[in-house]
Design a protein around this nucleic acid. Structure first.
Lengths: 94, 94
DNA sequence: ATAATATTTAGATATTTATCTAAATGTATA
DNA sequence: TATACATTTAGATAAATATCTAAATATTAT
């Protein structure tokens, strides 16, 4: 549980909006790109950061790559916030 | 509810550890600084970012300034995460 | 095999960020 | 009032980040 990559990933508005887009169902990189006004290379970069942070999972499907939310890591982050609200906290894991 | 400043504030490990330090009770800037190995100027800078993000509240008490967690904003951020888990989401607020 | 499509990687640039030291501000006390 | 103490502000620098265009990789279809 090192949260650094995850929080860093969440600090960009485009990346947060990507997560919200994936809320209902997985999407391909191209479909995600279509929702924004930046280049596909930029979205690809953001996706790789979300992937490294564990927030999304990718699956190669022939010509396409689909991305989906990884709820497990979302729940881990939620756990961090609950420590703020009175739970235990291990100072090594920030 | 513009979350940009809040998420940005959470993206730094020192700032997250400051929040955890404030979990149980308010602390002065000096007490907070004592927990880290960076200068007081640096901690002051981090505190101003947390303050701007609404995550901490400050209170002048004579010679000292004490900082405390603002649970209201913590709860707002928690709300953002719950939209990921199936709730509604207003795309304008990311 | 060639062409078309989907995505990533490479390289460059401008902006943001974390940090430091030194100076400034504000408050209490001798 | 002068001194000490607590904190912030200013100015500088090095590192990280978001973005772009162009090139590379991979897959499907003609």
């Amino acid at each position: 549980m090192g949260f650094q990559l995850t929080f860093k990933a969440l600090s960009d508005p485009i990346r947060r909006e990507i997560l919200q887009l994936l809320r209902t169902s997985p999407l391909t990189a191209g479909e995600i790109t279509a929702h924004f006004s930046v280049s596909n290379a930029t979205i690809s970069h953001h996706l790789s950061i979300l992937k490294e942070a564990g927030l999304v999972l990718d699956e190669k499907q022939g010509k396409y790559i689909t991305y989906e939310l990884n709820m497990t890591v979302v729940d881990e982050i939620l756990g961090w916030f609950y420590t703020l609200k009175g739970g235990d906290f291990n100072e090594k894991d920030n």
